[in-house]
Amino acid sequence: MNEIMTKAWYTLISLFVITNYGLLLGGTMARVRAKVQGRIGQPVWQPYIDILKNNFKRTGIYHGVMFYLGPVFRLAGGLGTYLFIPAVYGSLVFSNFSFSGDLLLVMYFIFFGQLGMALGAGQSGHPYSPLGVSRGLAQMTAFEVPFALSVIAIAAQYQTLSITEIVAAQQGGILNWVAFTNPLAMVAGMISFLGMSMGNPFSVVIAPQEIPIGPPTEMQSSFLGMLQTNRAIFNGAKLVLFMNLYFGGATNIWIMVIKTFLIYLYTVIVDASFPRFRTDQSIRFFLGTPALIGIAAVVLQML
């Protein structure tokens, strides 16, 4: 019983940290983006206010049960993804529920939230919602290819699928990182990360000029607030995952903050500097060079 209580506390702490970190990271990155554009930009805490405001909305509408549950699925997906990743190597508090499964679990649990959200968006009856979902899913299958290849290359390299062990194998100096021991896998993975974070040039889902905002077109009030919360957590989870996979993980929370910040910075810079692909261009892009790099990484492991 005591153990369960301790685990519950640890979980709460871990979630609290990642939520706040994710929100602040989002705010900071908005500032960074503003700087790129020569603006001052919004306050760092703007994400908090937006979420507060959305939850303070007096009215709301919903289109049906799945619409209602869509954001719940999405947030559950975000929380779950984070909870299945050991965030800080060797830390009891931040090991989360990583004993439930390995890398494959995390890779597939990412779909959980997306599926739920897609269903919620679908029930809104708005044609843009499924259009956005269709684009997003189509692109997702494409960027999963280099990512899958990259993960397979890493699994082959270390003969393990456990994230903890992958991190453990990278300890002991910067040159032990996958980024240096298996650079091709890192390159493929980091390109697919661009797709995963849905920024330009891969922002086909939201695509403000074409299908204004896509899936969450009908989402409002606390539904939207929930989606925003998830955005912070899910972002954090993805960053932690990529940090663990390619950049040696983190032995304490500060290293995690620095590393994930830099990874995120990379996507933001790309985002701020490119126009958008069309969906089919994006698919072809991911199945082109990044996939070839991934295959090269895998083939190197086979030789």
Partner: peptide, 11 residues
């Protein structure tokens, strides 16, 4: 730079 004031456009 309206973002300074927490103003954003939504579609």
């Amino acid at each position: 730079d309206m973002y300074r004031y927490g103003i954003q456009a939504r579609p």
